[in-house]
Simulated assay, not measured.
Amino acid sequence: MIASLLFCLAMPAQAEVQERLQEQYYDLQVAPGESLSRAINQASPIRQNGQIYHAYTRWQVQWNFWWREQRDGRCQIDLTRTRLNATITLPRLGGGDAQQRQRFEQYLGALREHEMGHYRIGQAAAAEIDAALLTTPEYPSCAELQQQANRRANAVLQRHVEHERRYDRETGHGRSQGAWLTE
């Protein structure tokens, strides 16, 4: 009995990261000979700050943690659960001739790869948040623990949001990865 109690007290905090990725599509029609770029621009629902984008990845990290309070009020995290929910929005081609469809498939592959880069940034954020929560030191009170743990998680989240902005700047929103239509 005492050995199993000591074992439970010595157990490290437990983590759980869950991921969910969905793809959604918007349809576009292209007539033979029509500019693929122009058709996607007209069909795309993705507009931000006066810009039209052909694809978009939205990710969100949510975290929960549970703590153990000592008799003297000290508090430490025992369990975390971090969730990454992401949606990638991509175009879906209807119509077009064989050359347009082939060009679209090449473009779509590069576009999807660029968007997966955004998703990987979200994955890194979720994993780092979970690790930051698990390594949050013990605090004199549970209120202080909660405040500091959330501060740590939000700082990690902000770094990854900035990483996403750099990623888009460095790749030209996927242009350097082949996600670019010249016509």
Score class of each variant (00 low, 15 high):
residue 1 M to K: 08
residue 1 M to Q: 09
residue 7 F to I: 09
residue 7 F to M: 07
residue 8 C to W: 04
residue 9 L to S: 08
residue 15 A to V: 09
residue 19 E to T: 02
residue 19 E to H: 08
residue 24 Q to E: 01
residue 24 Q to T: 05
residue 27 D to W: 10
residue 27 D to L: 14
residue 29 Q to R: 00
residue 31 A to H: 07
residue 32 P to I: 02
residue 32 P to R: 07
residue 33 G to E: 00
residue 35 S to C: 08
residue 36 L to M: 06
residue 38 R to D: 01
residue 40 I to M: 15
residue 43 A to D: 00
residue 47 R to Y: 06
residue 49 N to Q: 15
residue 51 Q to S: 13
residue 52 I to C: 12
residue 52 I to F: 06
residue 56 Y to T: 00
residue 56 Y to K: 10
residue 58 R to G: 11
residue 63 W to L: 01
residue 65 F to A: 08
residue 66 W to P: 01
residue 67 W to Y: 00
residue 71 R to Y: 11
residue 72 D to V: 01
residue 75 C to H: 09
residue 76 Q to L: 00
residue 78 D to L: 06
residue 79 L to Q: 11
residue 80 T to C: 09
residue 81 R to V: 03
residue 87 T to D: 04
residue 88 I to P: 07
residue 89 T to P: 04
residue 91 P to H: 14
residue 91 P to T: 10
residue 94 G to T: 09
residue 95 G to F: 07
residue 95 G to T: 03
residue 96 G to R: 05
residue 99 Q to R: 04
residue 99 Q to Y: 01
residue 102 Q to W: 02
residue 104 F to R: 08
residue 105 E to M: 01
residue 106 Q to V: 13
residue 106 Q to M: 13
residue 107 Y to T: 12
residue 108 L to Y: 11
residue 109 G to P: 06
residue 111 L to G: 14
residue 116 M to H: 06
residue 117 G to E: 00
residue 119 Y to W: 08
residue 120 R to E: 06
residue 121 I to N: 03
residue 123 Q to T: 08
residue 127 A to K: 00
residue 130 D to N: 09
residue 132 A to V: 00
residue 134 L to N: 10
residue 136 T to Y: 02
residue 136 T to S: 15
residue 138 E to M: 15
residue 140 P to S: 11
residue 142 C to M: 09
residue 143 A to C: 03
residue 143 A to F: 03
residue 147 Q to Y: 05
residue 149 A to C: 09
residue 151 R to C: 10
residue 155 A to L: 02
residue 156 V to F: 02
residue 157 L to H: 00
residue 158 Q to M: 05
residue 167 Y to N: 05
residue 169 R to S: 04
residue 169 R to D: 11
residue 170 E to N: 02
residue 171 T to W: 04
residue 176 S to V: 12
residue 180 W to L: 12
residue 180 W to H: 14
residue 180 W to Q: 14
residue 181 L to A: 13
